[in-house]
Design a protein around this nucleic acid. Structure first.
Lengths: 339, 339
DNA sequence: CTGAAAGCGCTTACAG
DNA sequence: CTGAAAGCGCTTACAG
């Protein structure tokens, strides 16, 4: 592999001049610049990333901390990841993907060893073990998901409260008076999945305000359990005319459950979910939904992270907590309740 | 951040001794080793990855080249990625995930700049643009997917020929005499997705051998087109009693299609797919299938890659082309044909 | 068993 | 506008 020394030799200049000619960090005569560029082309020179990182203390790599829980729905993760990698590349960064079970340890490893300039944390819990590590790491961090303590980090998340209200309002406006909200399994909440109760509590309050009954329940995150949970819930609540789903696995399982019960949407039951449009297309889900916008959230997190990285790390702008406003994508699964 | 110099100072030894004490590459007195280890703990020392890479020419990072095509089904990708990252970590490597559209360029960038010790290529096409780049890159590479020319790389793939035969045999043994195979869209083939015709041609040959009629067709990879494709195909082939699916989107869309046509499985139609068990669970797919084992393929590719990386790069073992034997997972979606 | 020194390939003050 | 030199933080022959 050619080094900058080889480039300098071929161009007939010093190594520093070759370096400056390529970085543009000081004035270079037109002639020298040309000779250096020709040499680069001729030798197929690419700077050694490790050497550059050592000299500049910048890796141009961001760390992406994903995590996979047994009780959460894996396919949705891919879209967050693409939002991050695509935007990172657009801004000139590569992405180190870390998905090991011990998140805090992984985070410490990649920051302490200076493999990355900053990190994006996915799937952040209310009390996330990774946050204490991140705060002492020195590297800037952007989160997708809202922790209780947001000091020192930039946070991006769907406005789940508003999502809950929007779902209730949508069905209430159509005349529904008895609704059922199916959430993630309880252990997701126990583990700190705040979005579950953020959506639920707001939905409950809004239902009270609108004078509609809202039952709340949870269902598993996997087949076959989620299917039988749904069947049981529908049996327990025969008077419900509108179903709210804050559980992607339940949304994926619902079509076959309704089929076996001979229920059709929206004639017998109105349904609104909370998932992404891509998810809906992949799984052929014919349900209107609050768009969860995973790619946008991943992208926003990276943009902010890169601003911080390139802002110098010193006293810069205050940290942000930014919510995406939920929008309902209409797929024709809601109508007035049957009488 | 503490450096090895700080560690040496605190331990009262030279930097080289500190380094050797940590690497274990030469004999160290018990006393010195203890002092060095204490100093490491006290300072929270972690080696700087860039400096180490520069000194050793080893990054302990592997590059993972994923690609997302509009006409392929994204959710399946996640499992390959997890197979790679989990196994890499197990072997002491981190993973640089690259998913930009221009694969050859991305590959050149991360290998020329020495960001990675080797690469795993996902979704390899018959004539893959990334392979010429890989062959000149000097870094070892392991592929998931079978290209026409396998020189210089290690290759892992499902045995799609055997998968096609197994699907036909399974239904033929139950007495089916008229089958329909639904494959990926034609542009997947045109782009070099050899697995489409590898499975199809083997299925056709096996059907001839067994004396059963096998119709072949393709369907889109996305909703809503794939749904209407399936409806059209079922109308065109009313006498078909067994359906083979080499198209994950079609498998995901099939339940609602059958529902609207009032067909039940396996009473009216036997169905066998080709997808992973995790995929089946996530999408609630009640169809028997040839297991595509993405996590195992990703894992095998990484293991072989790491052997090459650590084997020294010189004349070592010959390259391998290894196929996973397809196994049918029974989900009760096949039975004798109705008469 | 340990240390002083060179070198990996860059960048960037310092000097002219 | 250009060059010689120092330094980033490691590892590893070389010497004792």
């Amino acid at each position: 592999m050619a080094t900058i020394g080889d480039v300098a030799k071929v161009a007939g200049v010093s190594r520093s001049t070759a370096s400056y000619a390529l970085s543009g960090k000081r004035a270079i005569s037109h002639d020298v610049r040309r000779r250096v560029e020709d040499a680069v082309r001729q030798l197929g020179y690419t700077p050694n990333a490790g050497a550059r990182a050592l000299a500049t203390s910048q890796t141009r790599v961001i760390g992406l901390l994903a995590q996979f829980f047994d009780d959460e729905f894996a396919p949705a993760m891919m879209q967050y990841i693409r939002g991050v990698t695509d935007t990172a590349r657009e801004l000139g960064y590569d992405t180190l993907l870390v998905s090991e079970a011990d998140g805090p340890n992984a985070l410490r490893r990649i920051t302490d060893s200076r493999m990355v300039d900053g990190v994006v944390l996915l799937n952040v819990a209310e009390q996330d073990d990774r946050l204490p590590v991140l705060r002492t790491a020195g590297a800037p961090g952007a989160l997708v998901g809202l922790p209780r303590d947001t000091t020192g980090v930039d946070v991006f998340d769907l406005d789940f409260e508003e999502a809950g209200r929007a779902m209730v309002d949508h069905l209430a406006a159509l005349g529904h008076r008895e609704l059922l909200l199916v959430s993630q399994p309880d252990h997701v909440v126990e583990r700190g999945g705040a979005y579950v109760w953020r959506l639920r509590d707001a939905a409950v309050a809004q239902a009270a305000l609108r004078g509609v009954r809202l039952h709340t329940a949870s269902a598993a995150a996997h087949q076959p359990q989620v299917g039988s949970d749904l069947r049981t819930l529908l049996e327990q609540h025969p008077d419900v005319t509108g179903l709210l789903l804050n559980n992607e696995a339940a949304a994926a399982a619902l079509p076959s459950v309704l089929q076996t019960r001979g229920l059709s949407v929206p004639a017998d039951l109105s349904v609104v979910g909370r998932f992404s449009d891509e998810f809906a297309r992949n799984f052929s889900l014919p349900y209107s939904s609050v768009e969860s916008a995973p790619d946008r959230l991943g992208s926003m997190a990276v943009r902010q992270l890169v601003r911080r990285i390139e802002g110098g790390g010193e006293v810069t702008e205050p940290h942000v907590v930014r919510y995406i406003t939920p929008e309902i994508v209409d797929r024709g699964s809601t109508d007035r309740p049957r009488v």
